[in-house]
Write a protein that binds this DNA or RNA. Structure first.
Lengths: 229, 229
DNA sequence: CCGGATCCGGGTTGATACTG
DNA sequence: CAGTATCAACCCGGATCCGG
């Protein structure tokens, strides 16, 4: 294994997850608790099958994920993060936050899969009315539905469907992302084909600037927009 | 440029800083405000000169750093992070935090340069007595002295020397790191050759468990230790 | 010395074909 | 479905050389 040979936390981390595709595999497992080989493959267009198999072995031997031989009847192995692997979430979220401003520029041929919304929603949603009763929002932007729950000041975002939600929102992933990160008003979203069923007020519960989509609204905490090479 | 072609913040970040050495170059510039080519090279043993030059061009065109043509007399270019590049600090610190537990295992041939202590010190030092007057600690573990300042609940760590410090601590970087991250008592550090001049009580100001170096003390927030492949 | 450019051998990645 | 095998292309590491 190629290593930097530096007694530095960052270098040690990159020794284990710095190779191409590694952190994207971790991202998939952060979003979907357990994955089959093919699930990961479909979410990583362009990865070679041998490379995916190699990375999974490497991450397994690094203690970041485990391969669970499934039940005897239909044995299809499942991959799941260990606690140690799940501890990468903060770092993954911070890397994703830094890259978010680059998503505002129109993507040429970029893919956007619905389940990827989970991580940015975790970053940008806030429970702005902690004293009010719990609310549930279901999102459907593609194959994988997303469930949002705001309760007592906390936000939970996960793949799946909540029962008896306060609202069900359908639309293209791009549009829902802009809507829920405060970069697009509800009116504009509806005009772009978003379907909102149920209570519309719950949007204000979790998104700050619903009606003030500042023209050059920047998702960053600070700093100028970076160029794209 | 090779890109993942995914409309995902993490993927976009990795498109720009996911290549080998890129984040280590950012780390160097986070620690030393402005660097010459050779400074970076000395801190990255093993990097090929052409690769360093290439990475610097890539990071420059990504808006992460700028190349400052120095003053006319003796022109030696300086590299400095932009605001956008400095915004990577949180992500870099979180990646480093995740890798910290891997530093406890004896490193085979790993290099440890004194100035790398700056980032872990930023992570693990706390001002535990915010109401007391400001204190200054100078560290010397190698070529680059480090200045620590605790004041009003905040910790500042930078390369350099404070004037009239409360304490001056000299020793091997490994030992100072363990001492200031609470994994080694002061007594043990002194026994290993650490020289402490000045007030010894200031250590309690910034380090939590000075006298309780739990045997298997873990720097992680949670999770088991990962294996090393 | 500083800041690279150039060349080369070997390792890694990407694409495709193939197998249990 | 879950990989392995193969091979071309590219990237990386090390050495050398070269203009200020």
């Amino acid at each position: 294994m190629r290593t930097y040979k530096q007694a530095c936390g960052l270098a040690k981390t990159l020794d284990l997850v710095g190779d191409r595709w590694s952190l994207l595999i971790v991202r998939e497992l952060l979003i979907r608790d357990a994955c089959r080989y093919t699930d990961i493959r479909k979410s990583l267009p362009g990865i070679a099958t041998n490379l995916l198999a190699l990375r999974l072995r490497e991450l397994e031997s690094a203690g970041i994920l485990v391969r669970e031989a499934a039940a005897p009847p239909i044995a299809t192995p499942l991959f799941r993060l260990t606690d140690r692997g799940r501890a990468l979430e903060k770092a993954v979220l911070e890397l994703g936050r830094w890259g978010s401003p680059l998503l505002t520029t129109p993507s040429r041929g970029d893919k956007l899969q619905a389940h990827w919304l989970v991580l940015p929603l975790k970053l940008y949603l806030r429970d702005l009315k902690p004293q009010e009763p719990k609310i549930l929002i279901n999102l459907r932007a593609g194959a994988d539905p997303i469930a949002i729950e705001a309760s007592a000041g906390n936000i939970a975002v996960r793949l799946g469907v909540s029962e008896h939600p306060d609202a069900l929102v359908k639309g293209k992933p791009e549009t829902l992302l802009r809507l829920f990160t405060g970069r697009m008003s509800l009116g504009a979203a509806l005009a772009e084909g978003v379907q909102w069923e149920g209570n519309r007020e719950v949007l204000r519960r979790v998104v700050g600037t619903v009606d003030a989509p500042a023209p050059g609204a920047n998702l960053m905490d600070s700093g100028a927009a970076g160029g794209v090479s």
